[in-house]
Design a protein around this nucleic acid. Structure first.
Lengths: 212, 212, 212, 212
DNA sequence: AATGAATGAGGCTTCATTCAT
DNA sequence: GATGAATGAAGCCTCATTCAT
């Protein structure tokens, strides 16, 4: 009995994984139920034993997709490093997810963003996305505040806006990478990115003196 | 005669503007020709007097959309300010476009990104997007190099990777803003963003001494 | 004034000739008004100044087409040859039309046959076709009777049925010729055809004796 | 399993039979998928489970239609009658098919002829038609040669051209019959046709003497 | 008189969903 | 529970016809 439930759950996951692959190849609208069923190795009708309709598959796929980006932050946040170090580790972790992602799925980011602000159950997905971003921002915000207190992060920054910017930076380079994997080298980007976040690109007066 | 050509061009543009609105509301796939025609205030069949098929509308809309993001860089680039100042102005200009954009259209960014890497004529649009990003990166790269030479930008950054990151930063905050215009205040973001790019968030030893 | 009427008539004929060409290439249903107008070197709308609708063009084209097959029989029929000779000449004349026909049009035979027994104004065209065939049969019937009387045609044939058969023979070889002009040599066919009609293929007892 | 295959084949045939009826009534181009589906007693979409598109239906219908005209020649050809008798039987057989054909379909002859030399996949059908006619001509040609050898057919005819003519004769009377079933009596035609083929209509010198 | 831009009815086709097996 | 045959709503596109110029 319990086994049956597990099987049911397992099969739903199988279908979602198949759906994610097809969605990533064709886009949410252009993917057909037939294609998803074929990819999952089951019959077209069977899909409907596990999901109400195509929309539900999209939403479940979205939730599943989102989980792939959840980092286990505990080890980072509970370490006794200073804020700047934690920020560095956090950033590295997220870049690692993007980089290592078994990236049949990553392309879907765009589709879900697009679907989130349009689509039938717009509200549901948009809400979930915003929750996702909010928690991310909170994470970075906390680390930034910690750094301000421990003196490793500049006092004159706004932790809230800045957290938004740092996260954006990673999304943004991901976009360019997805669009042009040949031209963009995520490995190199990562180093420069952390460098930029911590030190900026500008030269201060002190830097100048430093360089004397 | 000349008037007719102008009218023809004008009408194509009208249709594209209508299409952009509908695409932004419904998504590229879900938008129907009927909806576009209605939005343009013309008959369904008329669309086909101006465009071969729906795909052509999508592509033309994309090109039109892309033009909205083209900034007139000349005044910035030809000024006699130093590289850091130019970088600041450039960033501000682009943020200005995002901010001021008559934002029925901005949502489409996601759809075009998604369509670019999928969709039927994937190659065409992807190519165009990459050209767009390449030229943007080149722009920033040149300014960064200029700054390195004039001493306003740190020597130890990689101009190519960094240009990619800076552009990404703006795309990334745009994403969050589109998804949640209530929570994200682009105005404030802009200031912090330029600040972050120039100075970073980290505190150097010199900063620390400075703060004494 | 009279010139204007003539112009009008001339232009109708131009359109019909254009229509015939397009019909022959594309078929009645698949030919478009635009194609006909282009072929006639006039505007699409102009067609409707001369014809009520596409159906009228089809019918007028049919009538025009039919005229191409009308032979001037007088010289043949009024000659003082015997029936068999007249039959031979008549057959040769018709084969000549088929053979010499500027054969962009000949293919249309099938379309008109098909349209005649279906199509919107089925009755009209079918009636016309049957009138055409009736008069042809009458022609041959009269010649056959003449031959029976003058002793050049066998007494034991049925002039009515036989006229139908002789005409059919020519239609039938035309069909094969249209379908496969490489394999079918109308020139040779013609000789054999007249031979067959007059003498048949069978060997009579008398023939046998004759061949001794 | 085997039953399923049979059912699938059976259903395809049902659809083709329905299509043939509708095609015969409306013409190939004017027949709609909806009409075919209705005639077959199934849903519009179901058609596409069995056929790729309308064109495939047309082609399959054509092949099916063509089979209706295939005669089982064996019994005729293997008989020990002479060539002339075989010719007579062959002709009678074919006339029988035309006559007895459950003739909702016969009208389609024109449409297929027309489609064959135009239409999208012109080559395919034309080729098939020509194969059909070629094999028919070969059949008659062989019989004629046989007759020439056994002395029942005149030596001075060309078997190839003549076979073409004889087949044409039957097509030709079929045309007249289809166009005007009231006026044309196939029954009577048949007798006269065989008579004409064997003896011709002309009176030879020998005939004349014979009639003394 | 001549035109061609505009139109929408109507055709073909796809595909999410149902349901009988 | 699993399936896929059947379905029809809905979308794209064509094209005969109208009509303002």
């Amino acid at each position: 009995m319990s086994a049956l439930i597990i099987d049911k759950v397992k099969k739903k996951e199988d279908i979602i994984l198949a759906a994610l692959k097809v969605f990533a190849q064709k886009g949410l609208s252009n993917a057909t139920i037939k294609e998803i069923a074929d990819m999952a190795g089951i019959g077209k009708g069977t899909i409907y034993e596990y999901f109400k309709d195509k929309n539900e598959i999209i939403h479940r796929s979205f939730f599943y997709f989102q989980k792939l980006f959840e980092v286990d932050m505990e080890t980072i946040l509970l370490s006794d490093e200073n804020g700047a170090s934690k920020l560095k580790n956090l950033t590295g972790s997220i870049m690692g997810i993007i980089k290592n992602e078994n990236n049949d799925y990553l392309d879907l980011m765009f589709d879900f963003w697009a679907e989130g602000i349009k689509g039938h159950e717009k509200g549901l997905m948009l809400n979930e996305m915003n929750k996702f971003y909010k928690s991310y921002r909170k994470l970075f915000e906390d680390v930034l505040r910690e750094g301000i207190i421990d003196g490793s992060i500049r006092k004159d920054i706004d932790p809230f806006e800045t957290s938004s910017i740092i996260i954006g930076t990673m999304d943004g380079v991901m976009v360019q990478w997805i669009l042009d994997k040949k031209d963009i080298d995520l490995q190199k980007i990562e180093k420069n990115l952390i460098n930029l976040i911590l030190k900026g690109v500008g030269v201060s007066l002190l830097d100048k003196e430093d360089s004397k």
